[in-house]
Computed example of a mutant assay.
Amino acid sequence: MKGVHFPVTAIALLAFATLLASASDPSPLQDFCVAINNTDPAVFVNGKFCKNPKLASANDFFSDKLRNPGNTSNPIGSIVTAANVDDIPGLNTLGISFARVDFAPNGLNPPHTHPRATEILIVLEGSLYVGFVTSNGDGNRLFTKVLYKGDVFVFPVGLIHFQLNVGKTNALAIAGLSSQNPGVITIANAVFGSNPPINPDVLAKAFQVDEKEVDYLQKQFWYNNH
């Protein structure tokens, strides 16, 4: 019986597909990798340089950033205080970070995405109307829920999501994110507040509105609450 021969291109494509299928953030190969900015004694690992483990201290794994309420006196009535690898160097390579979200009454954490992280949110005070929208292939379905103290909700990685304070008092939530540096893209800010501005023809067609409306939106001040 003659052997089966595969073209080289087919083998290469199969290998590439296998590589993509198995790609993910790597598991740490050491107990920790405290991030440092000085590159002289370091090895570049996972986006940050590592301090010599023998020089690490408890403070490398500590932050008090989430202790105090953020200032919600802004146009959207919310503020996000992040505690990621830039704030806690010991998070480097561990694939996790946190954020505190403070809301004034009727405060909004506007529609946004985290390109590198799934988010799990727990409400500590007040009540929040939260939701996310699925991708185009899943019909852009909207999932929403009103959360109360102690309730938890998950926002899948990369999907547009939001939180709105629907109570009459201040609200507070803590978010856990599955990345040391999850990133954030606030939709309105990115679309209408980009630098330089996106061509109005593009936005007028995309949103099916008049260019005058696009021009108006691009001239607004888009507040960044992150």
Rank of each mutant, 00 (worst) to 15 (best):
V101S: 01
P110W: 00
R100E: 07
N165K: 04
S179C: 07
A188L: 01
T9Q: 02
A190C: 14
I185F: 14
S27K: 03
V191S: 09
Q218W: 01
P196H: 05
L124W: 07
N189L: 11
N195K: 12
Q163N: 07
A83T: 11
F6N: 04
K65G: 09
A204S: 15
T144Q: 13
V8T: 11
S135C: 08
V101L: 00
N199L: 09
S178R: 15
L128S: 00
N59H: 13
Y148Q: 13
R141W: 04
A56C: 07
T81D: 00
V4G: 03
G47M: 07
I79A: 10
D102L: 03
L177N: 00
N140C: 01
L203Y: 01
P115T: 01
V154Y: 10
H161Y: 00
D87Y: 02
Q180E: 12
K48E: 10
P182N: 14
G137S: 10
G77H: 01
G193L: 03
D64P: 04
I11Q: 15
A56D: 08
P89F: 05
F221Q: 14
S27G: 05
T81I: 04
S194E: 07
P200L: 01
L19Y: 11
A82H: 11
F162V: 00
K48A: 13
S57G: 15
A21W: 05
P115Q: 05
L66G: 02
D60P: 03
